[in-house]
Design a protein around this nucleic acid. Structure first.
Lengths: 341, 341
DNA sequence: TGTTAGCACTCACAATAAACGAGTGCTAAC
DNA sequence: GTTAGCACTCGTTTATTGTGAGTGCTAACA
């Protein structure tokens, strides 16, 4: 088995750089001409033969040039790749997306995803979540009109969510504050899972004792439960979906269809985006992907943790022949501007 | 110019029905064999020649069968088409989607879209809107924690929306009710457009008179304005996007890319879905479409008006060779179950 | 011992040609 | 008015032949 050396590394890098641009197998003569290694094509041919034996490149057929293998990309990403410096315009765009400070975290993630999609021309998946389970802190009812009331739930994480309820009977204004306070007192620190049938029965009992038997406990409780559930729910969306169709790798209709189907289902997006540590950029190359339809793609992803309360995830999807250097430096920039690193 | 008659109509219908299934040009012999018109292929050939002269069918090249033209589809949709009866299973699915009565209108539209996409295998665009401009009816502040308050806005259409604000200074609990009531009194009946600079100055003045000079009027006003704007905003989304790739019409990569790009932009979706009268099903065939990328598609759409307050729009997109009968009967069912017709 | 020129060989891809067949229009007979 | 028959058209399929980029190997060279 041949041994890796500086020169082989350089040739591998040349192959990868060229292949990222052209998506065509690279021959020895092309490299000899294009790069000034001071070597003839024959020498490069020998080295490429070694690289193939070592598994870093593949010859699609006997008389073609070489393309990088997953293993080759892996070596490149882990050792060779030089971080590409962001161009001023790209930087500007990211900073713009980030500087809308008033905006809620959810919108930050959306803005980020759009900016990254625009810069890189890849497909981006973004999520935003509240990482802790919400507990009820305060509950308030507001009369809207007749039997219609607004239910406001404020959680320990200071999230505020409301829901409009139509009650079976009009709740008199005089009781509203009393009921709100009672609900707050009784339900403080509850999480979504607490809202069982037993719990409901218990609460009905409490209310009866306080002389509030007319309060439609069930309706209110199930509304609160739904609010808590939706708060804990992670939002996920993909942007730049059609970008992936611009790559010759997906000129095949079957593949295009498969990837489109994949990207349309929220559950799949969750599966793709999840699983890495905060602040760390993870690169998953080709066959390393669990998802069958992504075996010819690479995914570069990062988890963004903002003061431990919110976090978002960003995943960039492209063909294995993707511009790792560009994407990683953009992602690095996102992380550092968001204050993660 | 030949004249249309019963027999030509039947042959046109046969051509369309076959073409919807196969996407292949239909020859005279195929029709003679398949349908029991009691006519030889030669006679049918003559009739088809007439249909071509009249512009209802097209021969892609000299020695091929015929395919329907946009004009042919138009005639078929307007006159010939028999409403396909919904199968029991399809009906069941629609009813299920509709019977979640507690669910907000927005979710109904989403459920509907999913059900229709599932039944028809076409791409569906759905919108939901509140058709009137919201006016402020009631405003309430709730203390959350320190300088953080929840702003609750209730509109004349009984929509409730909230926003969390971080005020520059803590607002004492004793003032909360007073400020809430003052805001309600002063802003009742305002719409989003009212919130000008002049308006803000006026309100600041009012507050000062009431001895409430510390209230951060600007922050609160701009938050209310944003809430009103977002309430008036129409939600739009597409489901079953990848379905359209399953049609041979989009086997061409260029077309696939174009349609994907189209469906990814919300503005485009709005443009496609808009413009028809409530309760009426509109069919736009091929070249009749304004959007260039839809010139080879048909769009079947309906506006759903629920008691004049909310409305939704549903558009089904497919190749011109789409199953008009099926889609229209499904849409009819949606409309009648929602009580529009 | 590493490098390189030279050469035979491979193989995807493009171009050309030939065979096929579904379908047409037209004519003449029923 | 309908239909059988037939020559003709033309897209599609299959086979054939070049073409060229690229390889591996050998032998000569520094």
């Amino acid at each position: 088995m041949p041994k890796m050396n500086e020169r082989k590394m350089k040739i591998l890098e040349a192959i990868i750089n060229d292949y990222i641009l052209t998506a065509e197998p690279i021959g020895s003569r092309t490299i000899a001409r294009k790069y000034d290694f001071g070597l003839s094509s024959a020498t490069i041919r020998n080295e490429m033969s070694d690289l193939e034996e070592m598994g870093y490149v593949i010859a699609p057929h006997t008389s073609s040039g070489r393309i990088p293998s997953d293993k080759g990309y892996r070596l490149y990403v882990d050792n060779v790749m030089k971080k590409r410096r962001l161009e001023a315009a790209e930087k500007e765009l990211l900073i713009q997306a980030l500087q809308r400070q008033e905006v809620a975290v959810q919108n930050i993630m959306r803005e980020m995803a759009n900016a990254v999609a625009f810069i890189t021309n890849y497909t981006i998946i973004a999520t935003e979540t509240l990482s802790k389970r919400h507990k009820v802190k305060q509950i308030q009812l507001i009369l809207v009109e007749g039997p219609i009331v607004a239910l406001i739930v404020i959680t320990d994480q200071n999230a505020v969510q409301n829901k409009v309820l139509v009650l079976p009977a009009v709740l008199p204004q005089s009781l509203i504050k009393k009921v709100s306070d009672a609900l707050t007192a009784m339900l403080a620190d509850s999480v979504a899972e607490d809202f069982t049938h037993l719990y409901a029965a218990m609460l009905r009992h409490h209310f009866r004792e306080k002389g509030l038997e007319d309060v439609p406990v069930d309706i209110i409780l199930s509304a609160i439960r739904e609010i808590l559930l939706s708060l804990n729910n992670t939002q996920v969306h993909a942007v730049g979906i059609k970008n992936i169709l611009d790559f010759p790798e997906f000129a095949n209709l079957e593949k295009a269809r498969a990837i489109m189907g994949l990207l349309e289902e929220k559950e799949n997006l969750h599966a793709i985006v999840s699983g890495q540590l905060a602040g760390e950029i993870q690169v998953i190359i080709g066959e390393e992907n669990e998802t069958p339809d992504l075996k010819e793609c690479s995914v570069i992803k990062a988890k963004i943790d903002i003061d431990g309360q919110y976090y978002g995830q960003l995943a960039i999807i492209g063909p294995t022949r993707m511009n790792y250097a560009q994407v990683m430096s953009v992602l690095q920039m996102v992380l550092s501007t968001l204050g993660v690193q």
